[in-house]
Write a protein that binds this DNA or RNA. Structure first.
Lengths: 151, 151
DNA sequence: TCCATTTTGGTAGATTTTACCAAAATTTCC
DNA sequence: GGAAATTTTGGTAAAATCTACCAAAATGGA
């Protein structure tokens, strides 16, 4: 499904999402037209789901971030769906994963400052119905924030 | 430092990292040349740290991922630096954060299958010197994996 | 208000994207 | 094994985009 040449393309486009088709074709070892067609196929099949500029969080004015461990009171679809729906539309929540372990969900939240985080908890998180427990782990340091899959 | 117009540009480039300069200029409401110069400045100042293709994890063959809570035995710079250095060069570790709370670090690890994850633990994680405890939280479902800061 | 600095919009040549073609490679089926 | 059908390839050219320049407009200090 995803062949070796595709993986090379994906690896390169993960490293530089704005690489020109010529650069790509060179590093992958293919003609520009063949390369371009493969990229197009990867986009249309959804294997490449999009492209994004990576913005330096602190420099852009987002000083505070945290990882939240969230547990629900009950796990009826009703509560779960409501939780998921609300989380999806809050842009401060960059990531949300349902996990095994003590907590039901792991969230990563990014905000401008602690005030904004406090507001986020009071006005959003604590008002979601069916929340049993929320534990905040403030991020002291971002060691690594990668998006590239390890082809 | 980062003005309103810059934020519009950043927001748009986060949504579509390959938007053409004309699209950008239109949505931001600016001439193409002014827009292009601002983008260039954002890149050169490091506020835009790069561009990346976003690849659909499962479709690309990475079925397994987990969030790890890692605690160190000792917190001398020696052990900390060693831990950070090793984590930085393992491409399966997409993210690593030093946090408050029970664990010292939160890691997100992505691999092709459980076998690969087991190998990752045995051959890498458990061999890092000074590790006190590693707790694995398998990711059951990715609710959200965003990269866009909430401008 | 005036001058210096910064930012803007317009323009044009260089580069890139994109759609097409026929040739090469691969697969399928007998 | 070999011929036909299918897929993939490389090359080409027109359309679109990028990029560097210019003079004009906007900004802001004295």
């Amino acid at each position: 499904m995803v062949e070796e040449q595709d993986e090379k393309i994906l690896a390169e486009l993960q490293k530089d999402g704005r690489a020109t088709n010529q650069q790509l074709a060179d590093t992958v070892g293919m003609s520009t037209s063949a390369c371009w067609r493969r990229v197009r196929a990867l986009e249309e099949s959804g294997i490449i789901s999009g492209y994004s500029a990576l913005v330096a969080r602190e420099r852009a004015g987002f000083a505070t971030s945290a990882i939240l461990h969230v547990s629900l009171e009950r796990h009826d679809v009703k509560f779960v769906d409501e939780f998921v729906a609300r989380v999806m539309q809050r842009r401060e929540v960059l990531e949300c994963f349902a996990t095994t372990g003590d907590a039901d969900y792991h969230l990563r939240v990014v905000v401008r400052d602690m005030d904004a985080y406090n507001k986020f908890l009071d006005e959003f998180m604590f008002r979601i119905p069916g929340i049993r427990h929320v534990r905040t782990n403030v991020i002291l340091k971002e060691i690594k924030t990668g998006v590239a899959l390890p082809f």
